[in-house]
Design a protein around this nucleic acid. Sequence first.
DNA 1: TTGAAAGCGATACCAC
DNA 2: GTGGTATCGCTTTCAA
Lengths: 348, 348
Amino acid sequence: MRCVMVQIPKTPAPALPAPRSVPTSADVARLAGVSRATVSYVLNNTSAVRISEPTRRRVHEAAKELGYVPHAAARSLRAGHSRMVLMPTPSFAAGPLYSRFLRDLQLALGRLDYTVVQHGGVGLHGDEAARAWAELRPVAVLVSGSGLGPKGVTVLKRSGARAVVTLGPDSVEGAHTLLMDFEAVGHCAGSHLYQRGRRRIGVVLPEEDNLEAFSTPRLEGVRRALHGTDATVTTLPLAYTEESAARLAARWRDLGLDAVFAYNDEYAMLLMRALQDEGVDVPAETAVMGADDLMLGRLLRPRLSTVHIELPSSRDLAELVDRAVRDPGAAPATHRVLGATVVHRESS
Amino acid sequence: MRCVMVQIPKTPAPALPAPRSVPTSADVARLAGVSRATVSYVLNNTSAVRISEPTRRRVHEAAKELGYVPHAAARSLRAGHSRMVLMPTPSFAAGPLYSRFLRDLQLALGRLDYTVVQHGGVGLHGDEAARAWAELRPVAVLVSGSGLGPKGVTVLKRSGARAVVTLGPDSVEGAHTLLMDFEAVGHCAGSHLYQRGRRRIGVVLPEEDNLEAFSTPRLEGVRRALHGTDATVTTLPLAYTEESAARLAARWRDLGLDAVFAYNDEYAMLLMRALQDEGVDVPAETAVMGADDLMLGRLLRPRLSTVHIELPSSRDLAELVDRAVRDPGAAPATHRVLGATVVHRESS
DNA sequence: TTGAAAGCGATACCAC
DNA sequence: GTGGTATCGCTTTCAA
């Protein structure tokens, strides 16, 4: 059933008022009948200088009348620094958990009076990207995921970034690292499944791009949990499509697995559904585990067992960035962050 | 089961090389033994000027040796314009559909050689936000959702933005508007349910913040579809929690509804599960419809009927922005975008 | 082919 | 209290 899809071409032009050029502080000064210096003092509330009340008013009125907005680039050029925190848009498709985290982080940094800017550096390779970010002369750079090498860190620092923080599965030389230990996630899942008596364990590896950095450590974690036991690990490439899941499910009995750790809750849901459609009983025949502890897992039947991932508090992280900015000399530290907790429900 | 959560304090400091100040084109010129002008010519491949090959090489080498990165602010200050497209981070939590769309858009604009920057203007009120964006002097601003008024548009244009494009449920005076007609979504859902013989129709309104701009038009669309018929519309506030859904489900039979349009697939899944737990038969007793056509709807049982929403092609949108930038005089147009199509599955 | 210098917009020091 | 003015880093015109 097709509903609506219209294209309205144009509305008639309401003759624009002459496209004045953008007002500068000089314009404000002219209109207020004072010097540019005075304008600057008034608008920045410079406390070192006392300006008479009438003058203040005149300046403020002139500024408002012209619709004056200061020019951030000019200001930071003069000042020699900005308060811009640059967060490159991650190259992987962030799930709901991560998106939310990034939003909170922006908020927390905003509260510390930083201007947070996400730079869509998609399509740039490694060091090229770092260069593009460096051109903006951010006071701090916060990179999620892999994709920044030690070379990039150097470029950024050389160009004035007082803090470079990476947030991801790998530690990067020269940068403060928030090491998201995804192995712990896999380890949790692996030991849980083992404790539940499972021995032939599958691990889903998403075929989607840019996810290896996250999926490989999870796999390694499972391997580590099972190392030295009689359990086996089988890798299961899976694309996020029904067809791919159906194909995998069709050969499930041949695989002879009694458990699967499905990367995260979304892939788990996809696979669990395909297994059920194939007549595989979950959890009797095969246990299924996800990760991320999304709402959807609670809504499935059987309820999905999962690994709850606790991301670092955005307030703490914001403060870490702030500290690093204030004391750029400090040695880059590596913090291991990520709480991983098994949430045992019904699917395992 | 608690697993891992460690905090490694510090790694020892590998004595940093003297924190040199950041190299400028003047430094490059000095090192290469040429003037700053020459450096600029070489590094920008200025075709109007021929520079001897040996000089070029010297400049390039000097630049590389110093790790020189040009200063974007200084450059655009001088040039009088930048190619920055500013996209304020939406105040609402973008779902997977929308996130993906924004990513694609960034990519498409990047291909047209724009620098896309998401500005985390969270916590700023209306015109205050517009001012903050204007300080960055973007060549274009692309605002999703509501939150930008005609006043804000004026501020942005006054400060040099050659294109202001809004993308959301409302049309904004003075800006190019991509009108996302969410009424059409509600209308689709409403007429579909009516055609299926449903007469007492509930409409879920999320209680989460900043979603009214999206939920109200959907509701209106349902109302419009049912106007002049014998069907009734009941609004159902619902928070995205199991408890809220359970509460709603508990009084379901009292409500006496035979269908519900649940805002989107995620709320639909939440509610459908609660209804099923309450013993309400879907679709026999109550039909459930979502929107967004997410993967998860196909995985539910019964399969979720939904409204497929077709967002504008990111390439088209990028080109629209580009055209608006090239011809800022053109009258702001309003395009009605959004394909809404019913996907009839099993839940209705 | 290269260099000197003006100027983009805002700020802060130093005179008046 | 207020006004000149040098300065931030870069581009570009004009001269040499």
